[in-house]
Design a protein around this nucleic acid. Sequence first.
DNA 1: CGGCGCGCTAAGCGCTTGCTCACCTTCGGG
DNA 2: CCCGAAGGTGAGCAAGCGCTTAGCGCGCCG
Lengths: 211, 211
Amino acid sequence: MSAAEETAEPHDDTAKPWGEVTPEAARKLLVAAVEAFAERGYHATTTRDIAGRAGMSPAALYIHYKTKEELLHRISRIGHDKALEILQAAAGGPGTAAERLDGAVRSFVRWHAERHTTARVVQYELDALSDEHRAEIIELRRRSDTAVRRILNDGVKAGEFDVPDVPGTTLAVLSLCIDVARWFNAQGRRTPDEVGALYADLVLRMVAAQK
Amino acid sequence: MSAAEETAEPHDDTAKPWGEVTPEAARKLLVAAVEAFAERGYHATTTRDIAGRAGMSPAALYIHYKTKEELLHRISRIGHDKALEILQAAAGGPGTAAERLDGAVRSFVRWHAERHTTARVVQYELDALSDEHRAEIIELRRRSDTAVRRILNDGVKAGEFDVPDVPGTTLAVLSLCIDVARWFNAQGRRTPDEVGALYADLVLRMVAAQK
DNA sequence: CGGCGCGCTAAGCGCTTGCTCACCTTCGGG
DNA sequence: CCCGAAGGTGAGCAAGCGCTTAGCGCGCCG
């Protein structure tokens, strides 16, 4: 990070979701793009729509971003960084494998529910990225997979878990959590916390050793 | 049925994937559209691309379909009918709740893996449908939900399952299966049968009563 | 054999798209 | 009090979009 960069925000990016995006106009455009992409999908969203939601002219977009695809990449990159951070924090934390798996699923699911607008873009618009940008993102996803697999392996080694197929179960756990972004509805009956608790319970049952 | 066995059921026209679509030219266009939609997404696919894949001129599309959206609707409708049929067959079949749930997940997942190109369109392009068409499809999805919930309720009543939150678990089971269409890769290591078996096992663990 | 209708194509219409460019403000520093 | 950079706008371009239309070839029936 360059010392010349000046931010009014303290180093808490969880309080203000897109706090790392500056200046203000660039953030407004990015937030507008997240909403539009989540609602209609990347390809069905026009640059005029994004600019309009941000209260600016279509040309303003190109002062802060080179192309529409770069906007998607910035969103995807920041979102994947956050998702990976959540999983790695849970995987590397203290506690038994069961406790860490519970924490990982709970917080990962809560993020997908709470920020389901962002998550929908992050998880379901990968195909719209350029080859280079997609490769960069896929590497982040590989690391997410590694973090979860580590918890499962630890649990098996410790005798806490009974998991015949660790790679397959890792895939299933991540898939289950990610798909929350697709169906979660903020107006629905369940809160993000409730979904997180339910899913953590279901996942723990999937891997639990028989007693 | 043994794994990796190639079967071409002669008497069943649903075994031939798009057998119900006639005439031949309409089927060729529809198959081309499924491929294109699955690869690039509905909005990123052009009518010229679809026609080109079918070896026809762009105008030919409009002899058999009124609009590009009608093509998507036909695909979505046929796919959802098939998915619902699979679940209802499993839910209404013989056997214990555990056996029926195993069968439902196994065949539902196998369909999503085997026909993941179709399933990707069917499951992830709903937003592109018109309001009327989407409402029609959502009704089919509601019935899929009902079929699975029925199995879970039966299992709880019979004491086979321990499921504190039946609606939530129903959602999770369906979500898990559906998301197979997103990540499944035909060139990957796992066959559709293997994924079906793995997932059936994981789901049964999620709902099993403690012993 | 003549004519008719169906399936298809070549050409293209009207419109929207991502993006650009000439120009206009605003504003801190000499 | 002027200046230049930074950030914004209105108008518009080239390309590509979904879709239409005029007309062509060809199997079928009298």
